[in-house]
């Protein structure tokens, strides 16, 4: 049963990602991406990570993608929709992504399922995923967590600087 769900979700993510890239209308692209994010949330649910699934929907589908839509709607992109090709450097792009694909396939042979940590499925279900994630994030991985928040702070400072530059 789990395999069935995983197969559906994984297949849908692949198909929807392709639709995002090949759709000629940018707003339709964003909508396919919205569906893809929802399917990714489904994948998290399959891994007993309900907190991650909810935050995936809140942050990516509810906030970031809405900002995408905002920008796309405000730009007048009817001209670009008639162009045959959006970018010129596609041979470079194809070779880089092929390289990444080969690297990923090569890394697949090192994939192991026999490693066991303290957080087994039963342990996560007992403490509930939200609590387990909070504990690990704020004790064991405190430093990476703080570094990530610092990176976001830098981005905010940059955005404020760019917005205020015009006013001076």
């Amino acid at each position: 049963m789990v395999e069935l769900f995983f197969g559906y979700l994984a297949g849908a993510v692949v198909v929807l990602s392709l639709l995002v890239v090949f759709s000629r209308n940018a707003v339709h692209s964003v909508l396919w991406m919205l569906l893809m994010f929802l399917h990714m949330a489904g994948l998290y649910l399959l891994l007993n990570a309900e907190f991650l699934a909810a935050t995936q929907v809140i942050v990516y589908a509810g906030a970031i993608l809405v900002l995408f839509l905002f920008v796309i709607m405000l730009l007048n992109i009817t001209e670009e929709m008639r162009l045959e090709q959006f970018t010129v450097g596609w041979p470079m792009g194809v070779s880089v992504s092929l390289g990444v694909l080969i690297a990923m396939l090569a890394a697949l042979s090192g994939f192991r399922t026999d490693l066991k940590g303290p957080w087994s499925i039963e342990a996560v279900e007992r403490t509930t995923h939200t609590k387990a994630l909070g504990k690990v994030l704020y004790t064991e991985y405190m430093l990476p967590f703080e570094i990530a928040s610092l990176v976001l702070l830098v981005a905010i400072v940059g955005a404020v600087y760019l917005a205020k530059k015009r006013l001076r």
Binding site: V27, E50, A54, T55, V57, I58, A61, V66, H129
Partner: peptide, 22 residues
């Protein structure tokens, strides 16, 4: 009766804005 009921409501209600925007 799910563990993340409150987050679920926040997530779903944030999707509701898509209807209006679209």
């Amino acid at each position: 009766d799910i563990n993340i009921g409150l987050l679920f409501i926040l997530a779903v209600s944030s999707l509701g804005s898509y209807g209006i925007v679209l």
